[in-house]
Structure formats: C-alpha cells, structure tokens
Design a protein around this nucleic acid. Structure first.
Lengths: 224, 224
DNA sequence: ACCTGAACACCGTTCAAGT
DNA sequence: ACCTGAACACCGTTCAAGT
C-alpha cells in the first residue's frame, strides 16, 4: 500500500528569475546561444513560453541577466593581497569562465546594460590597482589593456575549430585544402609548432599575461 | 520628345556574389547584424529572397563571406619594411576596420571557415615576423598576443554605450542610477578621468600596442 | 542559367482570457 | 499572482515551377 503524497518530490518548482537565468545558461553551454530561444527555455523549465514574460520583460533582459551571472563566476581575489597576484588570479579565472561559456564573450559587445555584479566586479578590480599604487591614468591603461587581452584571447580560443585532441586532424585537413605553395608561413608554423607534441594554444595565455604584468610593474616603479 | 532608351542607366545589374556580399556589409554597417536577413538583403538587391540561393548555399556562407571581405580591408604593409613598423601599421588598420564594422568582431568567434583573404592575411603577417628575425616560438607568441589585443580592444570599443560626443551624458546617466556609495572606484575613475576634457577611449589603443611592441623588441634582442 | 510563388517549420511578442 | 491559447509579423529554407 502506498502512502498518499500531497507534495511529491518531483513537484514542479515555481518559476523564478534565478532558475530562469541558470537554465538559460545551461542551454547555451550545451547547445550554443543560437539554441536559446524563448520556446526552448520554456520547455526546459516545463512551462509555456508566455510564462517567461512574467519574470523578464523580454529576451534582451535574459541576455543581460546571463552575462551578469557569468561575471559573477569570475574570482575576485581578496583586497589585501598584492596587485600583481590579484590581477593574475582574476585574469586566469576570467579566462576559465569564458572558456566554460564560449557564447558569452561575443555577447559582451552588444550588451549595454551592465548588471550590478558586473559593475561590482569592475569596481573591485579598479580598487585593487589603486591600492597597489597605480595613478588614475595608469589604472585606466592597465585595466583597458588587461581586459582587451583577456576578452580577445577568449574570443580566439572560442573560435578555434579544434580542441586539444583534434588539433592534428583538423590542421591536416585544413592544410590539405590549401592550393600548392600557398600560405608557406602558415604551413611552416603549423608543421613546426602547432603540430608538435605537447602543443597547447591555451599556454599562450600565460605568456602574454605575464608580459603585460611585467610591463606595468616596470611602469609603476618608474611612476613613483 | 524623349528618346527611346533600350538600356536605361538604372537597369538592374545581374546579381553576383560580390554585389551580394557588399550589400550585406552595407546593411550590417547601417543597421546592425541583426538587420541582415535573407529577406532584407534580397529587398536591398531588388530581388526575391530565393534568388540569393543561386549565389550562396545558405546564410552561413554569407557570414563567412563578409568576414573574409572585412579581412581584405585591413592594410598589409609591404614586405620590405621593418617588422615593428609593419606590425604597428597592420594593428592600427585592423582596429580602424573593426571600428567601421562593429558587428564583425564578435562574428569572428563563430566563423570556422577562414576564406582565402583571411588565410593570406595571416600568412603575410607571420612572414613579416619571421623575416624580422622572430623564431617560430616567438612568432607564435607575438601573433597570438597582438591579435588577442586587437580583437579584444575592438570588442570593447564596439560595446561602449557611447561615442566620443555623448560620453558625459551617458556616464552621468549611468552614475545617477548607482545606489549611493556603491562602486566608489568606478565613480572616481569616471569623474577624474573619463569625464575630463580631451578624454578619448581610442587613445588607449596606442598605449597598449606600443607596450606590446616594446616587449617583443626586447625579447627579440635577447633571443639572438 | 537564373529567378520566383507558395509553403513549412521555426522565431519573439501581444492580447485577452483563464485559475 | 501566475499561467496560458491563439494569433501576428517575422525568420531561413525547400520544392516545384516559371522564363
């Protein structure tokens, strides 16, 4: 004999904004941002499309919202460590987060309504630089440059037509389509670098990051 | 009395791939990539939507095609000038081109079929570095870093919610919505830097670019 | 060879109606 | 307060048919 269960464990949770946004992110992660439609989102939430409009004004607000959630995933180091360690950890974390959500980087461009988490992130990073002794001028330089580098790298990484395992196959396939003798330098770089064992495009990130941090360390010293 | 004109000057040109792509770019420039639909493109070409499919397989091919056209607009300096001048000119030109086509940068991510112009561009840039004395290793570092910076900067610039004239209005409006006391560092940076006369976000580009070029010049010297 | 009309399976969103 | 059915004006694309 079964007991009557007034509230079964599988009972549908009431819809709310947080669940809406995290489900939207899950869809984009799994199937790309193109697969995120009001209809697909509603179905994943076990609800009709029109119900979504009770929690967000429109799809734009969903896109603004998920970008703000993604920003919240980036580690903000404690305020009491030195600026270089803090900037390094934030940059590495940002790259990891953007690699986890490859649809997010290009979306940054069109989003012009930064959410509270995004603004808080920017504020904290600027604060770390200022406390580290950066002038306002130098803070602007450093922040602009670091973010350009991080987003640009993430954009390139998201656009790579291969992951680390399929490098040889994809590279060989692409080069097979080259007209004979065309792109000699590209071919050289592929053969003698990209196709060598142990190659990992991701390793490039640390090189450029440290180069930037070195430069600002030198500038900071000569600044005061 | 009017003469009979068998071929009026306004006669519709026959559709071809080049005209299709350049019209597509004109639409995206004028109204954003979202306004570029098979139907809007057909209308601009004075043709029915289905006619487009005689010149391209689908919309993906149009997107691949216009990205390749945009790449072709980037200046490739002559092979006989020194690497630093060449890299500088290419970077400045790339930024100008991407600023002219703000929809293009985020599109780079999803395009995985580089066209012949794009491949030729990459090949030429790598060639300039190699001839400048860069090892394969250092070439990979430099190219990855320069492109990450260029694309990242273009992405940020495209996402700015203001152009140079409207900076004060937009910044003031945004800050007016901040809860009191929130984002103190962001506010400081805005008040004492962004809102100062003569501020131009674009100026940041040269600073970071020269910093990168300086670093590689030093690395190149110690490398040989 | 090049173009097209009609149709299909999708979109985001509005509106009026249900509980 | 929260959800929904039906409808509207859009998408990209296929197919069969026109010149």
């Amino acid at each position: 004999m079964t007991t009557r269960v007034p509230e079964p464990a599988t009972k549908r949770q009431p819809l709310n904004r947080d669940r809406l946004l995290s489900t939207a992110i899950a869809i984009a992660d799994a199937s790309g941002i193109g697969a995120l439609t009001m209809r697909s989102l509603a179905q994943a939430l076990d609800v009709k499309p029109m119900s979504l409009y009770h929690h967000v004004a429109n799809k734009e607000e969903i896109l603004d919202g998920i970008i703000d959630v993604v920003f919240g995933e980036i580690e903000l180091p404690p305020a009491d460590i030195d600026w270089r360690t803090a900037m390094r950890r934030r940059a590495v974390s940002a790259r990891q987060v953007l690699a986890r959500h490859p649809w997010a980087t290009p979306l940054m461009e069109s989003r012009r309504n930064p959410g509270p988490v995004t603004l808080g992130h920017h504020d904290a990073v600027i604060g770390i630089l200022r406390r580290g002794g950066f002038s306002i001028q130098l803070t602007a330089h450093a922040y602009s440059m670091l973010d350009a580098y991080i987003y640009g790298f993430a954009l390139q990484e998201a656009g790579l037509p291969f992951d680390n395992e399929t490098v040889p196959d994809v590279a060989q396939e692409m080069m097979a389509e080259f007209p004979t003798g065309a792109y000699p330098h590209l071919t050289e770089l592929a053969m003698e670098h990209v196709l060598q064992p142990g190659y990992d495009y991701g390793d490039e990130f640390d090189f450029g990051l440290d180069l930037i941090l070195d430069s600002f360390e030198a500038l900071l010293r000569s600044d005061r």
